[in-house]
Amino acid sequence: MILRGRAWKYGDNVDTDVIIPARYLNTSQPEELALHVLEDLDPEFRSKMEKGDIIVAGHNFGCGSSREHAPIAIKASGVGCVVAKSFARIFYRNAINIGLPIIEAPEAVERIKSGDILEIDLENGEIRNLSSGESFRFKAFPPFLMEILRAGGLVEYTKRRLRGDNREKGSRNTR
């Protein structure tokens, strides 16, 4: 899967309160949440971004509240992928669970500038900066997470599991 889009670069510790402020959490409709994505960090983001664009950020992206509304808002706004130096753990699992591609690539983030056009090869673990001509490798997801991503997210993965289609790692726990 190849993603292509313009980079919008932000700093460290982009928290879920600025990704989607709590004043909009009285709904969980993706389209409605998307209208306010990153509103308190960059009020113009929504109007200047285009479908497929890529958020590039520093350390600890998505820290704070567990609200899944944050990755939902990003995905529904049309953002293709988030590349960061590191992710807060709940955001990380939420993104995997709902099928929003996220990539940890500290060196790439260092070099990418806002406005650069990026091409990301998810399968082969490569980020190509078409504006600068540089390219960067990133580590593939651990096999267990890749299984969830391949299934299209945790819901599809679990549907198969409940049907007994696949034997997941670890024990199948029943009470």
């Binding site: 969980s28 567990s66 609200r67 899944e68 990755p71 709940i90 699992r93 939420n94 669970n97 709902i98 997210g153 945790l154 819901v155 679990t158």
Partner: peptide, 10 residues
């Protein structure tokens, strides 16, 4: 530990 809504629903 805190998780997302999809985790909780599953």
């Amino acid at each position: 530990t805190g998780v997302g809504s999809t985790d909780a629903g599953v």
